[in-house]
């Protein structure tokens, strides 16, 4: 049965204390690659928020009304991936029709999102923790916002450290990881407020 968690706590926890990126390490690849540039980070962050909210809700429906009744839960990895890929494709077409500016800002990031582990990760967490439909949607939205917040913060920090002199081996990825470590400590500092698994 769905765990009994107040909506607000779940929302807050998924942004801060259980940040999908800093506490669960999901979506790292694009996080590190894209955070070099602040505008791209913003675009990708927004795209992740939208896609996560939709895929978490749709995958909940697919899981509970298709996979469980048909006893096909072991196929969930494949089905989730297909749902994610089609949602991304559909969003891309819709945004293209509705707003050209938005498409120029978000469009190039959408294909990248299909392979972002945060998206599949949220769907799998949703399945393991047995969230209700509303909880899944809130969890998806909160995780997306948390991801957006984290990538914006990292992009800003990297802009500052870009010009600093560091040892040749540490430059680039090494320094970025250590920076992320400090950010993770800050986010985890919220754990005292509430802890939702």
């Amino acid at each position: 049965m769905a765990p009994d968690i107040p909506m607000f706590s779940l929302f807050f926890a998924s942004i801060f204390t259980s940040n999908i990126l800093l506490a669960n390490f999901l979506g790292m690849c694009s996080f590190i690659a894209i955070s070099k540039d602040i505008n791209s980070s913003n675009g990708l962050g927004m795209a992740v928020v939208v896609v996560l909210t939709f895929t978490a809700s749709i995958n909940w429906v697919v899981l509970n009304y298709v996979l469980i009744p048909l006893d096909l839960v072991y196929l969930r990895f494949i089905i989730f991936i297909i749902v994610i890929a089609s949602v991304v494709q559909m969003l891309e077409m819709i945004i293209d029709r509705v707003s050209q500016t938005l498409y120029l800002n978000l469009g190039i990031f959408l294909p990248l999102i299909t392979v972002n582990c945060a998206i599949l990760g949220v769907s799998l967490f949703m399945e393991i923790r047995q969230y209700s439909f509303l909880q899944s949607a809130v969890f998806g939205l909160g995780s997306g916002l948390g991801w957006w917040l984290a990538i914006m913060a990292l992009a800003a920090i990297r802009k500052k450290t870009e010009k600093s002199k560091v040892s040749a081996g540490l430059q680039g990825a090494g320094l970025t990881f250590i920076t992320i470590g400090f950010m993770a400590m800050a986010f985890i500092g919220f754990t005292g407020l509430l802890q939702v698994q």
Binding site: L22, G169, G174, F177, I178, F182, I188
Partner: peptide, 22 residues
Amino acid sequence: VMPPSAFFLIGVITWGGKYLMH
């Protein structure tokens, strides 16, 4: 035991690996 240590360690490994290669 907490997540940040993983980031620190991977940062240090990256640093060490690249340093040796240089």
